[in-house]
Design a protein around this nucleic acid. Sequence first.
DNA 1: CTGCAGATGCAAGTTTATTTCATGTGCGGC
DNA 2: GCCGCACATGAAATAAACTTGCATCTGCAG
Lengths: 154, 154
Amino acid sequence: MSVLNSDAEALLRERLQTHELRVTPNRLAVFRALLQSARPLSVPELATHLSDDGLSVPTLYRIMEVFSAIGVTHPVLVDHQSVGYELREPFRSHHDHLVCSACGRVVDLYNCDLTEAMAQLGRDNQCRVNFHQVELHGLCADCAAVKGAEVARG
Amino acid sequence: MSVLNSDAEALLRERLQTHELRVTPNRLAVFRALLQSARPLSVPELATHLSDDGLSVPTLYRIMEVFSAIGVTHPVLVDHQSVGYELREPFRSHHDHLVCSACGRVVDLYNCDLTEAMAQLGRDNQCRVNFHQVELHGLCADCAAVKGAEVARG
DNA sequence: CTGCAGATGCAAGTTTATTTCATGTGCGGC
DNA sequence: GCCGCACATGAAATAAACTTGCATCTGCAG
């Protein structure tokens, strides 16, 4: 985490107010759900998680639209088929993803030092790069271990 | 392109036969549509493009499932909201994407030399990397030029 | 050419996403 | 503090996207 959870909400308040948007219980609830989740959440998943709070589905779509517009979240492809949302910096520290082709899980990869490589790629194409998002496809640590054992057994 | 279009179909035939799957007019039609498209296509888009061929929607979903299973295509997030399909190597040469925050276009970036950086990132996380997919966010060449001019004018 | 497993279309069903509109509420101003 | 208005929300209806079941058709091996 790049910020304490208690501070993250203050940051969200600030971000909303900058854009003349209101700080509502619903928006806070969605934000907290995303903060606590280890992986991107889709709208249907959010609907399940937040059913107690009585959040309606249309509201969830609207909130995700707002959050993405003001840079609080960004969408990620989950399970090769559905759209999930994930907090962006500085609400959550930057990381990239590995999609495991064996078990389908999306694993967060930290300690990525690709900023310079990305900037270079941008320069090579006359583009200006603000941020990057990398998705690796392969085997996660668990599945790679199993595969390794299989190979060893023959 | 990493292969001539005329050879690409032969390659597809081979790939299908390896998996004991049939070479059908429908599968060829979808393949050609993806070959000709400069960007990933979603199932609804494919349905529109191929309406003349009388391809039914369930068939399209089934074909995309097959293509993804045998590594002909892979899914990509399009317009921040829907799932599109794109040919993989060797049907189409590897490239990454830049999403322009100004005009919204998705620009293909070739000449990317990130393989080693990606492999390292995988090693750091005990993962095995098969391929990567990078999405840069920023300004495309056109918009960057305009922005540069604006700054120069003051 | 023939048979059969795989592929397809159609129709129905289910889930996911969007729109409309009346009601409720955050928050700026008094 | 409390008032009021514009933004936010929920419920219901609608539309779009995705699945499933089943009967028919067809690629292709023999």
